Simulated assay, not measured.
Amino acid sequence: MSAAETLLQNLGVADPMEIDLEAIARTMGVRVRRIPLDGCEARITGNGDKAIVAINSRSSEERQRFSIGHELGHWHFHRHKVLMCQDADIGGHSSRATQAEKAADRFAADLLMPRYLFDPAIRQHSKLNFKAIRALAHQFGSSLTATAIRCVETKNASALLVCHGRDGRKWFRRSPDVPDRWFPQDRLDAESPAFDLVFSNKGDDMFPQRIPADAWFDRAEAQCYELREQSIHIGFGQILTLLLIDDLEMLDER
């Protein structure tokens, strides 16, 4: 169990509605202030065993909650340092993120969506799609993107989550049982419904659609398989695509 999940259990948190981040912060000696910030999403300043976290009040409530969790992660792992986190540092998903930022992101995800509560919640949904992900995001007070990542990282579905913009792939995540050889292409294939969302301003996909796997993977064997794809807009000219693998042969390690 992670440090954040242990903290929640020690506080007796047994329901997502009980995850009061500002109250949790006080137990850690941290006071949270929500103020307009320029040039960063959040910052933490500590002195001894006390700290103040400033959160950008201009951001969405879900973004503010993740930022609080992120800064509490810094307080737990990187105490006695003055840190200013840019927008890209908090849940930025970039492969260039520092180990400190990745650790703070993991702490935030575990604090907002602890597995001992999240795993039973996701099992209440018979199918993984963006409708289910939205419901979970509402239940846990987390952003759609953070919730989608959490869903894909569980063992309840074999899936990939891919973010694209007009200039190509931004980042992706895969479920633990999806082999490394399934690495999504940088550029969207015109055959993929996701292509229309990015380049033709098409609306969100209402449900997953079947598509040849070679539209997503540059491997000769991909032409033998199909998968299911669903894409949605997430702002800033970017889309999230959920790729669901049903064919067990695709999951064979080779």
Rank of each mutant, 00 (worst) to 15 (best):
I122K: 00
Q86V: 01
E62M: 05
W216L: 13
L160M: 15
R228M: 11
A42Y: 04
E226Y: 15
H80T: 12
L72D: 02
L117P: 03
D49E: 15
H78S: 12
A222T: 10
P208R: 06
S95A: 13
D105H: 07
E22S: 12
L144C: 05
T147M: 08
V13F: 05
C40H: 12
F195S: 01
L7Y: 03
H233D: 07
D20Q: 12
I44L: 15
Q99K: 13
N201H: 13
L117S: 08
A121K: 05
P120L: 11
R106E: 13
H125C: 08
H74T: 06
L128F: 13
I35R: 13
I232W: 04
L240S: 04
A3F: 07
Q238C: 11
I245V: 14
R123T: 11
Q185H: 03
F130D: 05
R26L: 14
T27F: 07
A4D: 06
R219N: 08
F118W: 09
A3E: 13
K155N: 14
P114H: 09
C163T: 08
L111Q: 04
R134E: 15
R34W: 06
Q238S: 08
C151H: 02
A146K: 02
P114L: 11
Q139I: 08
E229H: 10
F195D: 00
A220K: 15
A100H: 03
S2N: 14
P120D: 11
D49S: 13
Q209S: 15
I232T: 08
E226C: 14
V178S: 00
I234M: 08
L83A: 09
S60K: 14
I68P: 00
I245W: 01
A23H: 09
F66V: 01
W216A: 01
G12K: 11
I90C: 08
L128G: 00
H138T: 11
S60C: 03
N47W: 10
G91N: 04
L240K: 03
Y116M: 07
R96P: 00
A23D: 11
G46P: 05
L37V: 06
S95F: 09
E18Q: 15
R187I: 02
I24E: 04
D196G: 06
R254V: 11
A190T: 13
A51C: 10
G48D: 06
Q9Y: 07
R228S: 12
